[in-house]
Design a protein around this nucleic acid. Structure first.
Length: 873
RNA sequence: GCCGGAGUGGCGGAAUGGCAGACGCACUGGACUCAAAAUCCAGCGCCCUUCAAAGGCGUGUGGGUUCAACUCCCACCUCCGGCACCA
């Protein structure tokens, strides 16, 4: 089936590029050239090798990188490895193989696979986060954080996963289970390193506005940071000298606060609990501590709590209100305590109903006998001897009461963020060691000169079992001395999380071999920021937020010159497996229509177990909105494409595609599937389609029997029509590439080739220009044709074709004619014809005239050259 | 529940408010062939009628704005992604 020899061609050009260092970006910036830094999210080199999802983003960036080079830009397009991480360590545990060995093997495989796809990376800039020359600077950045008071230790309740033997970040816990492996996670206090990302919350939020990212990603980050504006209010505890401070976004509802709730972990609980209540309080606290996050979520609907026996005084009306503890109040947000306004907060409402607490309306506009009214409204029941906010709309009531509280010294305006400090240590071996030692239990940084602090060799990767890292089992690692005093010291046994290395790799690519500095300032100034960053949406929040945080710290430390690292961000959509049709059968083997099949494959009517079976598309047809079995079209089947997974057996291996169709076909197909950012199903038939396209293009040039250029490729003068086609193609492909609309760029080139096929003379200049347009998409293929057309050198730096509008001008135009908004025909008129002439032509047209017969033209709308609409009546 | 995105042929998808369905796949017919594959040519939203021409209906649903709506506005439905007791 193969016509053009893609195997030979692809190998040959990959070798050529490597040998000639075609894509080497000079170490020193080229001052007079505009720069373009185009970056892929570097992969974790897993043992499974490359997956068809990887080349999607990589092809997109490669096309743009090649295009920009032809446009005269100095392009930085590097690749590296996010190589620390759990799987290699897990594998070490099982087999005793050093994670470094596994990692190196996996990297070699990934590199070879990426190279087989013809990506134009500058491989001399390759970095791996596991390389001591690299993590030296990760540790250096940690010391910067430490110096600035942004790294600290805390005894925190962490997500402890017994199965993985490690602590996980909140973000790595999904529904109370570990994101990796789905093991249960419980809460347990432990000494941990924390990074004070919260100190940067406001800047991380505000600077989003300056970024050219999709609104949805920015919104996700905004939600994650979760800024809310309100007030802190102090409540005097009745019979004690101290107050409890709460945070509220609705200080205007203060008159409606009928009780208070502290989180079970709140520091004052033990002091205020009365004797009678003490045992109950203690029991509740213990129960809450035992609850995993999963249990907390499951019980979300059911509010629980316990009265402390203590009372507080509502500062605006002096009412004595009970103080409760309940786990619906989180210790880690705000002050860990709330004033409860059941009339105007759904959670407080549910709690008040549950425990029979008073509900007092202070905002009119709802019906509090039925449900909480949480919207804005007008205050009622909200006055004391000194102040009244009655009759005020919500925003004004908030301002007035906050000012009053401030004046009395019992409250002030306050901003809070959902964002928490970043839990930055893992109890693992395969990560960056912390460059700190402990002398008399006090942490102190190691000197910068002593970096990198390298990982020691270990006998066993078995976890310590105490929750500490395997490093804790190596006495030679733990015991050291303070270089300043010679006093005995111990080392940190935790390591950094995988996020650390990926927080700053884009900087190292700029100056990957620099031994003196993280990055040379002049080079940094030239290349930063990253102009385009492409990767999966799964990193929408965490990686991007962490990297932005480190970048801002480095900005404050004078290491980088930009406030933000990634100017433009695009997320490629996931590639799903092929579309699958699934039919359901009961125990007796009788087909059951898909609408009766519930989740877990049970009949939702009888709860009987069903068997799901895949059906070939030939046995399925469409009926209305659904697909049904052809043999019995009362039986619906499910039609869906699923995420690729080993267990489902629908994984496509890029190596196989490269073997059967070539890298250029794979690249072209991945781009042709649909818009880059969209989720889309794989189709092997689609791969064949683009492969056919390449074969057709090959035959536009080559006589494949003679292995020579066709005689049709001539040094002839192009016709007007040929130039029009060419320049239309240049215009559209250029615009599409600029906007990353690769799918439509490819269809435009397909249209050109379809047209071209009809030409008996294919003027060489026209055909050469077309090869250049195709080059970023199918680089090996284009290089080979370029060579066959008589060019000695690579086309990688040949100027991108220029579109000339004058070639698009046509002598005659076909203008669609509508009558009352309905298309009735088309008329052909000279280009630039006056409206009257077009109308006259329409009236004369045999197809259109009947629709005008006997009617008066009341209105004419003519969009020159595009449309004529005649309104008649 | 809240936030974001998307609903267009059998399928993937295309259309600065101006010819809906480009391009590709699948399918149908034809050419080439002893035959098949490959390739080339033609057709291909639905409905009615038909030798044909012509016509009607069509972009999730219902309204609206406009000479003209896949595109703009309002309401709703479905699917996907994220967040989820954050006071």
């Amino acid at each position: 089936m193969a016509v053009y020899p893609f195997h030979t061609i692809e190998k040959k050009w990959q070798a050529f590029w490597a040998e000639k260092k075609t894509f080497r970006t000079p170490d020193e910036p080229v001052a007079d050239k505009p720069k373009y830094y185009i970056l892929d999210m570097f992969p974790y080199p897993s043992g499974a090798g490359l997956h068809v999802g990887h080349p999607e983003g990589y092809t997109a960036t490669d096309i743009l990188a090649r295009y920009k080079r032809m446009k005269g830009f100095s392009v930085l397009h590097p690749m590296g490895w996010d190589a620390f991480g759990l799987p290699a360590e897990q594998y070490a545990l099982e087999t005793g193989t050093h994670p470094r060995v596994t990692t190196e093997r996996n990297i070699a495989r990934f590199r070879q696979q990426l190279q087989s796809l013809g990506f134009s990376y500058d491989w001399e800039r390759e970095v791996a986060t596991t390389d001591p020359d690299y993590y030296k600077w990760t540790q250096w950045i940690f010391l910067k954080l430490y110096e600035r008071g942004l790294a600290y230790q805390a005894e925190v309740a962490v997500n402890w996963c017994p199965a993985l033997g490690t602590v996980l970040a909140n973000e790595e816990v999904i529904d109370g289970k570990s994101e990796r492996g789905g093991h249960p996670v419980i809460r347990r206090p432990m000494r941990q390193w924390m990074l004070r990302i919260t100190a940067y919350a406001e800047r991380l939020l505000a600077d989003l506005d300056s970024l050219d990212w999709t609104e949805s990603i920015k919104e996700m980050q905004r939600n994650w940071i979760g800024k809310s504006t309100g007030a802190e209010v102090q409540f005097q505890v009745s019979g004690f000298k101290f107050q409890v401070t709460v945070f509220t976004t609705r200080p205007d509802t203060l008159f409606g606060a009928t009780y208070m709730v502290l989180s079970p972990e709140h520091a004052l609980v033990d002091q205020i609990a009365t004797l009678e209540q003490r045992a109950a309080v203690k029991a509740y606290q213990e129960a809450a501590a035992r609850k995993s996050d999963l249990e907390r979520t499951e019980l979300q609907k059911m509010k629980t709590g316990c009265f402390t026996g203590a009372y507080a005084l509502n500062p605006v009306n002096g009412h004595k209100i009970p103080i409760w503890i309940a786990d619906y109040v989180l210790a880690s947000y705000g002050t860990g305590a709330i004033m409860a306004v059941p009339a105007h907060d759904e959670r407080d409402y549910a709690f008040a109903k549950m425990f029979n607490l008073p509900i007092v309306e202070v905002i009119s506009g709802g019906d509090i006998t039925k449900e909480a009214f949480t919207g804005d409204g007008v205050n009622v029941n909200s006055a004391n001897a000194e102040i009244s906010i009655n009759g005020l709309p919500t925003p004004e009531a908030k301002a007035k009461i906050t000012a009053w509280l401030e004046g009395k010294g019992i409250g002030q305006a306050k901003v809070n963020y959902k964002l928490r400090d970043w839990l930055f240590s893992r109890q693992r071996y395969w990560g960056e060691p912390f460059p700190v030692i402990f002398v008399d239990g006090e942490s102190q940084p190691v000197s910068v000169d002593s970096l990198p602090l390298t990982l020691p060799e270990v006998e066993t990767y078995t976890l310590s079992g105490t929750g500490e890292s395997p490093l804790a089992t190596i006495p030679s690692w733990i015991h050291t001395t303070d270089p300043k005093t010679g006093a005995p010291a111990t080392r940190e046994t935790n390591t950094m999380p995988q996020w650390a290395g990926s927080c700053w790799y884009y900087l190292r690519f700029i100056d990957p071999k620099n031994q003196q500095r993280l990055v040379d300032p002049a080079k940094e100034k030239y290349w930063m920021p990253v102009d385009l960053y492409v990767g999966g949406a799964e990193h929408a929040v965490l990686h991007l937020l962490y990297a932005r945080f480190w970048h801002k710290v480095l900005y404050d430390a004078g290491v980088v010159s930009t406030k933000e690292p990634f100017q433009r961000l695009v997320n490629q959509g996931m590639i799903l497996g092929e579309m699958e049709y699934t039919a359901f059968y009961d125990e007796a083997g009788q087909p059951v229509s898909a609408e009766f099949a519930g989740e877990e494959h049970h009949d939702i009517r009888t709860n009987a177990k069903l068997k799901a079976e895949r059906v070939e598309d030939d046995f399925v047809e469409k009926k209305g909105d659904c697909f049904v079995l052809k043999e019995n079209n009362a039986i619906r089947v499910n039609a869906r494409a699923f995420k690729m997974s080993k267990s489902r057996g629908n994984v496509i291996n890029p190596d196989d595609v490269v073997r059967d169709y070539g890298a250029d076909t794979l690249r072209l197909y991945e781009m042709f599937m649909g818009p880059l950012e969209q989720v889309k199903p794989w189709s092997m038939k689609g791969v064949e389609g683009v492969h056919r396209f390449l074969n057709r293009v090959w035959r536009l040039f080559m006589d494949d029997r003679a292995d020579a250029l066709l005689p049709e490729i001539a040094d002839a003068e192009p016709t007007k029509d040929q130039l029009r086609w060419l320049h239309k193609t240049i215009k559209e492909v250029t615009g599409d590439v600029e906007d990353l609309r690769f799918n439509t760029a490819i269809s435009t080139m397909m249209e050109f080739s379809n047209e071209c096929q009809r030409w008996t003379q294919r003027p060489k200049p026209v055909m050469e220009t077309f090869v250049l347009l195709l080059a970023p998409f199918a680089p090996h293929f284009a290089e080979e044709l370029w060579l066959r057309l008589g060019h000695a050198d690579t086309l990688a730096y040949t100027p991108w074709p220029q579109f000339k509008p004058e070639y698009l001008v046509q002598d005659t135009l076909e203008v669609p004619v509508q009558v009352n908004g309905k298309l009735r025909g088309k008329v052909t008129v000279p280009n630039g014809a006056a409206q009257e002439a077009v109308v006259a032509a329409a009236q004369a047209d045999s197809g259109i005239a009947p629709h005008l017969a006997g009617k008066t033209i009341r209105k004419q709308i003519y969009i020159p050259g595009r449309m004529l609409n005649l309104v008649v009546g």
